[in-house]
Design a protein around this nucleic acid. Structure first.
Length: 217
DNA sequence: CACCAGGCAAGTA
DNA sequence: TACTTGCATGGT
């Protein structure tokens, strides 16, 4: 089967099974960016606890978090794991926001997607997935996010080998699907939700996967 | 008990 | 470039 068609069939199948996702959970662009950093290699449920702690202490605003002590951030984000490195990463992001955008998320919208992506990738602690999550889910830019679930699901469906790198996956998808932020948003959200249900690392055969009929095609 | 979660950076060869 | 390791909590 043609792989472009396969990408579309997989999307439709996931949408039929799961329905719309309405991602990303978050009340502001800043909250989305913070969540993107906190969720690195971490269960979202743990991130929610950390975000709630930040919110209860009024820190989900750039000006406030920028001024807060690292040790205090560490306490609050502790449930999200890797709390020392993530406190540094949040701080790094805020320094970036301070130096270039006067701590105002709205000003990010003035930059082109390409320039902004390069700038985000220079921040220590923001890699390709985190940068793209911010671009797509906080700023509605047409950037397809690749994560562990994407690689696993796509490889198990014969779309692309898992050992290909991030940009190869991303280019592959973006060369075949329209550059539509709504589509990329929903597709990635569906992939993560499907991954949690049916495509865990520990079940390589995906025996209960309802998409099995697509895997062989 | 082992394993995993919406990664990234730094070190080594 | 291609591997390896540290980072840490909480759920299954």
């Amino acid at each position: 089967m043609d792989k472009k068609l396969k990408l579309l069939k997989l999307y439709n199948e996931l949408m039929d099974r799961l329905g719309p996702s309405n991602w990303w959970p978050g009340d502001s662009a800043f909250e989305v960016a913070v969540g993107a950093i906190l969720t690195q290699n971490t269960n979202w449920g743990n991130v929610e606890k950390a975000i709630l702690n930040l919110k209860e202490n009024g820190l989900l605003e750039p000006e406030k978090m920028f001024q807060e002590e690292k040790d205090r951030l560490c306490e609050l984000i502790r449930p999200a794991g890797y709390f020392r490195v993530k406190a540094d990463r949040l701080k790094n992001f805020l320094v970036f926001l301070h130096l270039n955008f006067d701590l105002k998320m709205e000003k990010l919208r003035n930059e082109s997607t390409t320039k902004l992506r390069h700038a985000l990738l220079k921040v220590k602690g923001i890699g390709p997935e985190t940068a793209d999550s911010i671009l797509l889910y906080a700023l509605e830019r047409p950037v397809f996010v690749i994560d562990a679930y994407t690689k696993r699901i796509f490889s198990r469906h014969g779309i692309m080998e898992q050992e290909r790198d991030y940009s190869e996956f991303q280019d592959f998808v973006m060369d075949r699907l329209p550059r539509d932020p709504e589509l990329y948003n929903e597709y990635h959200a569906l992939i993560v939700r499907a991954g949690k249900n049916w495509c865990r690392k520990s079940k390589p055969l995906c025996s209960k996967c309802p998409l099995e009929h697509l895997q062989k095609a």
